[in-house]
Structures are given as C-alpha cells and as structure tokens.
Simulated scan of single mutants.
Amino acid sequence: MAYKILVSDLDETLLNDDGTVNEKNVNAIKVASAQGFKFVPNTGRSYLSVQPLLKELGLYNKADQFVISYNGAAIIENENNQVFLSRAMDFKLANQIFKAGLVDETVDAHIYTIDQLYIYNLSASDEKYMAERAVPFEVIDNAEIDFLMNKPIMKVIFESPNSATREKIKLAVIEAVGETAVEATFSSQRYVEFNQAGVDKGAAALLLGEKLGIKAEEIIAVGDNNNDIAMIRAAGLGISVANGIETVQEAADVVTKRTNNEGAIAEIIERYVLEGN
C-alpha cells in the first residue's frame, strides 16, 4: 500500500514532552515531503500557533500542504494560510457550552475563533503549558462571550489538572446541551474539549482526503490521547505512539516502539513511507 498522507497529533505525539521536536522527526518529515508526501498536523490548536513548527518542518507557506485545526473544525492550506474548509459551531451552542462548563472557580475556559484564542480564568498550570508551546492568546476578564456573537467559534474547551473535575465538566455540558449536540473528548491529561456534533479529527482527515482524491486506505493517522481515536479509526492505518493511553492503543492497528520523546513519527515514516523507496 502506497500511503499518501500522515495526519498527526502534536502534543505527546509529534512533540517531545517539553514541546520541542525530535530531530529524527524533522529529518524524516522533510525527506518524505520532498517526495510529495503530505505530513498534516491534526491538532486541537489553532493553525496560527503551529506556524513556527511548520517552519521547522519545512512546510511553512507551502502549497498543497495542510494543517487540520480545532479538532477538525478547520482545514488550512499552508500557502498563505488559506481556509480550505471550516465547520464552526452556532454561537448559542458555544455560549451554552461555555456557561455550563465553568463548574467551579478552578476551571479555565478556552474559546477558539478561526484566528484567535480567548481564555477566561487562566490558571497557573495552563499559563505554563501555553508558554512552553508558544501559543498566543488573549485573556478575557469575565464570564461573558457575547462579544463573539458574530465570529465563527470553532470549539470550546476547559482546563483542569483534576480528572474528576474534567468528568464533571463533561457531564455538566452534556446535560445542558444534549449528548447529540457535541463531540466531547479529553486531551493532554488536562483538557476536556467540545466541538459541534460530527466534527472530529477523523472526519476532517477523510474530508481532506476526499478533496485531494486520496482514499481512506491511503491515509495514516497517529495520536496518543482520547481526541485522536476518531482519526485512528477512520484512517487506513491507525497508529498509537508507545506512550499513547490504553484506549488509543486498543483502537490502533499498530503501536510504535518509540515514544513521542524518541522520534515515533520518524519510526512511522521510515517504516511505512520511505521503506523500499
């Protein structure tokens, strides 16, 4: 099978624990992309926050190379950051999610528009995490997001290092909006994330493939956490990195020998993309 795309999670998958990139990954991605292969970051983050990463990988401002952002709510072509596809949520739904998820004073909330991240009640742990990954954001001072009423909201997420609190947030939001209204996922052992129903990393990977004439069986997907399961199941070859959580490893066709800190992406590219070329 000749694979044509690798869609990859970033944190704890492509990136080391400290937010840097293993040099093995950088080199493998550059070699593969020079041969016409597509390496597509498939992330919960904004595409704007991954521009320094794209420069490091040799994919910055490249035509026919892409980033999937906001857990699949937007697909961006790297050349001039053109919006290839956008699936924003209704403001009423976003506002309901935002209000319901603030279950106590320790929780902070992220609201993503197509080109901006707003954070309410920024926690010290989240501030450190954002700084390590050089993610730009704007702090909002009160629990009102009416100023975003006319802007496309891509997703709403909440941060808590406490797993019981994250479960409480998920239940509160689902009770408020209904289970069929949202896709709820967990990531990075700190976030619970909400997109509108039908929007996930897997659906976006398949939509990108369809637009480019690439079949599902020609797509590789790799991740480590709950919000990666949809793309791992959707792809022709679904892979968990060695440090992936148990449910991700169970969903995957293959588990790498290497962890994110050891160059797991290079292992995948060397084995499934470059081998025999």
Rank of each mutant, 00 (worst) to 15 (best):
S187W: 14
K151V: 04
V255G: 02
D146L: 04
A88P: 06
R133N: 13
D224L: 10
I119A: 13
D228I: 15
Q116I: 10
L93E: 10
N61L: 10
A197F: 07
Y191E: 01
N226M: 02
E127C: 10
Y47M: 03
V103W: 05
Q65H: 05
I29T: 12
L57F: 08
F147H: 00
K4S: 08
A251W: 10
R271Y: 07
K201T: 01
D253F: 06
V273Y: 04
K168G: 03
K4H: 09
I239Y: 01
N81A: 15
K201P: 04
D108S: 15
H110Q: 08
L102T: 03
E12Q: 14
G178D: 09
V135A: 13
E77L: 04
A216L: 09
K38I: 14
F84H: 04
Q35V: 00
L48Y: 11
L212G: 01
F158W: 05
N225F: 14
A32K: 00
F98Q: 05
E167G: 06
E270I: 04
S86E: 07
S33W: 08
S8G: 00
G244S: 04
K92N: 11
L15V: 09
N260Y: 12
E270W: 02
Y3K: 03
L85W: 01
A2F: 07
K155D: 08
N142M: 11
P52T: 02
K24D: 13
K92S: 11
N81I: 07
V241S: 09
E105P: 07
A197T: 14
K128N: 05
T165K: 12
E262S: 09
E217L: 05
F137P: 00
E132R: 15
D228P: 05
E23Q: 06
I111S: 05
T43N: 06
K38F: 03
I174P: 08
